[in-house]
Design a protein around this nucleic acid. Sequence first.
DNA 1: AGCACGATTAACT
DNA 2: GTTAATCGTGCTC
Length: 200
Amino acid sequence: MTNSARLQRAFFNRPTLNVARELLGTRLVHIENGQRIAGIIIEAEAYLGEKDLGCHAKAGRTPRTEPLYGAPGHAYVYFTYGMHWLFNCVTQPEGVPEAVLVRAIEPTEGLAVIAKRRGRQPKHLWTDGPAKLAQALGIKGRENKLDLTASDAEIFIEKGLEIPDSRVTTSPRVGFNTVPEPWKSKPWRFQASLQGLAIS
DNA sequence: AGCACGATTAACT
DNA sequence: GTTAATCGTGCTC
């Protein structure tokens, strides 16, 4: 793969729901020690700014939420439950605090490394959750605010499979038990089925 | 300064 | 289905 396959800033500088939908089928890549650890994004959720009471930006501009207010195409990686890291792509122009949480990938490269980190679980549970895929790819707090579109970035997203609408389902976002309506029920979670597709 | 809780996960009954 | 693990963050006092 060449750099030309990497998604550029214009991809992220768009309405967040479009970005979340179109991230399905793309490839999330982390280069560690020159080796690619990667997988195809199959689940993502949109977070739409200060008015969205499920979005961290509801707290306004704070040290934690600062990356959300930055330029599109940057990583927002945050720590939760005292032990987990979650990876997001910042969307929309600078000053608009929106992002997409990557919730699941289908592992495709660096399987030995992923196995070392996730091998205590069965294979189908390696990267089927946001904290699981961050652990599998070795993404932690040091990657927060990283520019995914920089030519020398070691975390980036590549163009991948085209996922037809017939393979995409939407549903309410996960972990929203205490989030008030209407945000609790917004169908801003996108999932892709790769059943029967040849992936590599 | 203190406190309740979280965009979760794994292990357990 | 239930719950412990574990700590940074933002809110209240």
